[in-house]
């Protein structure tokens, strides 16, 4: 395959970036998108140029570090995948592919295609946990009976990998799908009830502090989420938040 790549290059967090064109030949359609970038980087290194920085870890679709907007969509045109699972067969020979970092005020670009998603970590730290007694008398979680439907729903929420595609897709750069998934996975289970009131308030407060936008229910986040996290989570978080606000 022959491709024309337009890639965002930015030296560091404070420099101004720009789109740079890279013609690329010899790409096989069975390569993953990241392997295609590996090929390009190898060529750049051989030419003595600075390789394109991009985040990747597991290359199995679960680390969620890739943070790339490909042809105007987070993680590219296919559904329910991250960039490492996107294959070049999803493109045509001769295509121009635009590759940019996720854009949001709360996700500043560190270099090239790498963004700082630590805002998500801080939201999680604000309440995305349960306090467990680890003094030696810890109860086995399985000792508490939980209905399968609820367990499944909580587990679905917990599959959020915090990749940030929801923020990248949302025209408002809202982080409500992420935050709501993290609230939901605890709100649904008995272990999460003790801290339910503070959790949702603290996490929403942190979400606002980080500078994410407001949800306008366009549903773009749900469509682009590689793990299929549903908008039901946002409704659940809203309900939890109102309940908590009224309790004080």
């Amino acid at each position: 395959m022959k491709l024309n790549l337009k890639i965002w290059r930015q030296k560091d967090a404070t420099s101004k970036g720009q789109m740079v064109e890279y013609p690329l030949k010899g790409i096989e359609e069975d390569m993953s998108f990241l392997e295609m970038l590996d090929v390009l980087n190898e060529q750049l290194i051989n030419k003595g140029e600075e390789p394109i920085e991009f985040d990747h870890d597991c290359r199995e679709g679960i680390c969620g570090t890739c943070s790339m907007q490909i042809n105007g969509q987070p993680h590219g045109p296919d559904r329910l995948i991250t960039v490492c699972q996107l294959h070049m067969r999803s493109f045509n020979d001769g295509d121009t592919i635009v590759i940019e970092p996720f854009r949001a005020k709360a996700f500043p670009v560190i270099k090239d295609l790498i963004v700082d998603r630590s805002a998500f970590d801080r939201i999680q730290q604000a309440g995305g946990f349960v306090s467990v007694n680890t003094s030696g008398n810890t109860l086995d979680a399985n000792a508490i009976p939980i209905g399968k439907d609820i367990a499944d729903t909580a587990f679905n929420s917990a599959t959020c990998i915090g990749c940030g595609a929801c923020v990248a897709a949302c025209k408002n750069a809202s982080a409500m799908l992420f935050t709501s998934a993290k609230v939901s996975q605890f709100a649904l289970l008995p272990q999460g009830q003790v801290e339910a009131t503070e959790r949702v308030q603290n996490m929403v407060r942190q979400m606002d502090i980080e500078g994410f936008g407001n949800c306008t229910n366009t549903g773009a986040c749900e469509v682009e989420c590689p793990k299929g996290i549903s908008l039901e989570n946002i409704a659940r978080m809203n309900k939890e938040y109102y309940k908590a606000s009224l309790k004080g």
């Binding site: 970036g17 949001a104 005020k105 709360a106 750069a173 500078g211």
Partner: peptide
């Protein structure tokens, strides 16, 4: 919401 998107716009946004 516009401020939350940040200073640099997507070159391609579908």
């Amino acid at each position: 919401n516009r401020a939350a998107r940040g200073g640099v716009k997507y070159a391609s946004y579908k």
